[in-house]
């Protein structure tokens, strides 16, 4: 195996290795859905709470590391998912507490937690940077065994992750339709309004950022099982992937204030983003691109989306001015 320092390489081998017989479409969809759970988390902080949170670069591998360690020590796999989620929540809570009580800007608070998590994650992995899981029993191998023969093998994981993503999406939708969820939404919009309601915005931020990182860690836990390893570098650039996915989703689908539509956009955005990355990875060589260039490509993608979004805004404004005249 050629070592490139890019964790995606192993992913490629795993997804497209002949022994699995996985198709390109399935690879994109499954990966898009797994990372889609993370995108839902990023969507909550960036779009609903208006709290740009960089903790996710650390909480994603934290979820993966916790899951890997639980698998190796034989913890019940479903309990392991819960532990990964709880670990993510705690990471988010730390960021929120740093921001709330030390009056540190939210970006810096996230970077602080993310940096500390790097060490924590290596500890969780047992002082190693990478833990392979290829021959271990995971939720995915269990699911595959259980449904083998009932559903064509190549569709089992796809169906499983469609269900998982939809269940989590629905849970998020329901949460944001409760009084608490709506108040979180109002805070991202207008913090003074929330204060005027007698609610402490610090408490709300702690809940929101915690929840978001819980989802990100959950996504990491599934990713570790799917990739067959947990790596401390898994989180590198996660925030960029998440943000790009959110923006692609928003860009392609009509604006709406219905939470169900917004979370759906986030999932679709994630799938499309992974399609773009896939083509970059496999056909990039045509323009002499290597997998190491992917982060550059992701960044450029976000810049292009920002430019497009802003020119769209400009158009809207000019249209409005014309209409008023």
């Amino acid at each position: 195996m050629r070592f490139s320092g890019f964790p995606g390489d192993e992913r490629i081998r795993f997804i497209f290795g002949k022994r699995d017989g996985k198709s390109m479409i399935e690879g994109i969809l499954v990966e898009g859905l797994i990372y889609g759970i993370m995108v839902l988390g990023v969507f909550i902080t960036f779009r609903i709470l208006d709290f740009p949170d960089l903790t996710v670069d650390g909480s994603f591998p934290l979820g993966a590391a916790l899951m890997a360690q639980c698998i190796l020590t034989g913890v019940n796999l479903w309990l392991a998912l819960l532990i990964a989620f709880a670990g993510g929540v705690m990471a988010g809570v730390v960021t929120a507490l740093i921001h709330n009580h030390l009056k540190v800007p939210n970006l810096l608070a996230g970077i602080l937690t993310m940096t500390m998590l790097y060490s924590v994650n290596i500890r969780v992995l047992g002082n190693r940077a990478n833990v392979p899981l290829l021959n271990e029993e995971t939720i995915l191998t269990k699911v595959s065994e259980y449904f083998s023969g009932v559903i064509p093998d190549e569709y089992i994981l796809l169906l499983f992750f469609i269900i998982v993503a939809l269940v989590i999406k629905t849970a998020v939708d329901i949460f944001f339709r409760t009084d608490l969820g709506m108040t979180l939404g109002a805070m991202g919009n207008n913090e003074q309004m929330v204060i005027s309601q007698g609610v402490n915005p610090k408490t709300l931020k702690t809940i929101g950022v915690g929840l978001s990182n819980g989802l990100v860690a959950l996504s990491g836990a599934f990713a570790a099982q799917y990739l067959g390893f947990a790596d401390v570098g898994l989180g590198q650039g996660i925030i960029i992937s998440g943000l790009a996915s959110v923006m692609i989703g928003e860009f392609l689908i009509m604006k709406s204030n219905r939470i169900g539509v917004l979370t759906f956009c986030a999932l679709i955005g994630s799938i499309l983003f992974h399609a773009v990355v896939y083509f970059g990875r496999y056909y990039g060589y045509l323009i002499k691109m290597t997998p190491n260039d992917l982060n550059l490509i992701k960044g450029i993608l976000i810049i292009i989306l920002l430019v497009l979004a802003q020119s769209g805004k400009l158009k809207k404004v000019s249209r409005k001015v014309v209409a008023e005249k």
Binding site: F175, T178, D179, L180, M182, T183, G185, A186, N189, N190, Q192, M193, S196, Q197, G198, V199, N200, T203, N257
Partner: peptide, 24 residues
């Protein structure tokens, strides 16, 4: 400052018609 722009009227009223922490 008194209302949330990106939310519907009924959602705004749900949040504001009673003071205090909002539960699940």
């Amino acid at each position: 400052l008194g209302t949330a722009s990106n939310m519907s009227l009924e959602d705004n009223m749900t949040i504001t018609h009673k003071k205090g922490f909002k539960w699940l």
